[in-house]
């Protein structure tokens, strides 16, 4: 007798899977990776490789030890590894990169329950921890080929704006900075790809970058340099759009983006640190549950005037 399967409706699902979403993110990150190799040399590939490897292995090992389902193949650990690497200087000692990766996956992601459950962005949190733990190597910018160079933001806050690179150099990322954050063109291409593939929506990046633009116009702080410097573009498109740690509604995303923008300029213009994107996203991650509650749509139960 032919056995028929009996299961709950719906009996079809969309072709979208977690793995395909993460694959799209990796595709979107690819141009910036290629740019980093061209700009900073082959060592950037080594840093990316170490971060990805350690992220994947620590995710696998943690889940093995805790007898949880293996989630390595959803590619989210790979994404974390790439993002963390992109937020490190190319000259970072590899053991420090490995430590950051381990921290991102085990402490920030897995200890809070794994994919979808962490409240803070693993790559960003790990970067901030590294910034505190290894402040020397985390802020030594070598570009290109061993010549040390300051980032545009530190030049601006350090009162040396004459040394700023040209707009074209800024656009192509030919200046000091973290290895994946400098090439604006490559990051924008990736961001547009993510929007086109409906992995993210425009709300957060537009609100985030728009807020920074408006604030730097108001306070006359070289708006174009503000937009193209530091981790703003990579942060706005790739980190402030993380599903688990940011709001999922349209208005939630807009509030989140504006909040990130405000905190960023607050730190950049008046803070002790030249860059504030990472801190702004982490801070807004903490606010996310409140923003979500504020913007939660009301179910259409009817009957009470709605």
């Amino acid at each position: 007798m032919n056995k028929l399967i009996s299961s709950s409706s719906p009996h079809i699902t969309s072709p979208r899977t977690t793995q395909k979403i993460m694959r799209d993110v990796l595709i979107a990150l690819l141009p910036a990776g290629v740019a980093s190799v061209i700009i900073f040399g082959l060592r950037s590939l080594l840093v990316i490789g170490v971060c990805v490897l350690v992220c994947v292995v620590s995710e696998w090992a943690f889940e093995k030890i805790c007898k949880k389902d293996n989630t390595v193949f959803d590619l989210s650990a790979v994404v974390t590894g790439v993002l963390l690497a992109y937020n490190l200087p190319v000259s970072i000692p590899l053991w420090q990169a490995a430590f950051g990766s381990l921290f991102a996956i085990v402490v920030v992601k897995q200890l809070f329950g794994g994919i979808g459950q962490n409240f803070a962005n693993p790559a960003i949190t790990a970067r901030i921890v590294m910034l505190i733990a290894f402040s020397g190597t985390m802020t030594s910018w070598t570009f290109p080929d061993g010549v040390s160079s300051a980032t545009p933001l530190s030049l601006m806050s350090g009162g040396n704006p004459e040394a700023l690179p040209s707009y074209t150099d800024m656009l192509f990322g030919l200046h000091g900075g973290c290895l994946g954050e400098t090439c604006i063109i490559a990051l924008l291409a990736g961001g547009i790809y993510l929007i086109a593939r409906k992995v993210i929506t425009w709300h957060t990046p537009v609100a985030f970058i728009g807020t920074v633009l408006i604030m730097s116009l108001i306070f006359d702080k070289a708006p174009l340099y503000q937009l193209m410097s530091g981790g703003l573009v990579i942060g706005a498109f790739f980190m402030a759009t993380d599903y688990a740690t940011t709001p999922c509604t349209k208005w939630g995303k807009i509030i989140f983006g504006i909040g990130c923008g405000l905190v960023t300029v607050l730190i950049r213009f008046w803070g002790a640190s030249p860059e504030g994107v990472s801190y702004s996203i982490l801070l807004m991650n903490i606010f996310t549950p409140y923003i979500s509650r504020l913007t939660q749509p009301k179910p259409l139960a009817g009957g009470d005037g709605r």
């Binding site: 389902d69 959803d74 979808g116 599903y243 999922c248 509604t249 179910p299 259409l300």
Partner: peptide, 25 residues
């Protein structure tokens, strides 16, 4: 077509909420 796909962990993308005609979460 018949085999229900294997479920994995919720990634909190909110697509369920964003696509519910009655705005349930």
């Amino acid at each position: 077509d018949a085999r229900p796909p294997k479920a994995s962990s919720c990634i909190n993308c909110g697509e369920c909420l964003n696509n519910c005609p009655l705005r349930l979460d």
